[in-house]
Design a protein around this nucleic acid. Structure first.
Lengths: 92, 92
DNA sequence: CATGACCGTTATACTAATACCGGTATAACA
DNA sequence: TGTTATACCGGTATTAGTATAACGGTCATG
């Protein structure tokens, strides 16, 4: 009946999302990107560090736009390993 | 210092997002789509009716996947009219 | 040593996500 | 007509969590 707490898998996905965004940011400063996306730097920092595991849609969309990311690919990249694919390319 | 309340423009954008999702759903039932996306029907209903103006990224992503929507297009479609484009195709 | 960029923590207001209730509308059917 | 079933809506309640800000700390680099 109430909002269930985020599962460890969802937390991990948040961390992956943050890592992907940080990677895409490259050597640009957080301030620069945050301003470009129209969000506070503090919020960007929390998202990148994974402390915000389920950010708002439009926030991520704005960041994706600024960073030149394809949202669909981004989702696929950090998706939950629900079915646990046989071969993972992460460590390979 | 605290989270500012959502602006009317953001509320309106939420309504547009919901409308777009409902349009994409077509004649499929809410229950059907919600289950497919892995979210509760109540949540889908709230998003479609615009009562959740800034839904979570992964929630919208899941719906977009089920409904075969391109997230980038979806964002562009419901984007805030910040710069107010000269010609709108809505009523034209 | 000063500046710039980032991190970690703390605090708080507002919101998403969720569930349950009764209500409305339509369609099928006895 | 009355009943049943499906589908959607609006309101309410509750908790977890985002979004946000401010402070101080760290680590480079100049």
């Amino acid at each position: 009946m109430v909002r269930p707490i985020l599962s460890p898998a969802e937390r991990a996905r948040g961390r992956r999302l943050g890592a992907a965004l940080r990677r895409a940011r490259g050597d640009r400063s957080m301030v620069d990107v945050a301003i470009a996306a129209g969000i506070p730097v503090e919020t960007l920092r929390k998202i990148e560090t994974g402390r915000i595991a389920t950010p708002a849609f439009f926030t991520v969309a704005a960041l994706g736009g600024v960073l030149g990311l394809d949202l669909a690919s981004l989702v696929a990249e950090v998706a939950l390993p629900e079915v646990a694919p046989a071969a993972d390319a992460a460590t390979a």
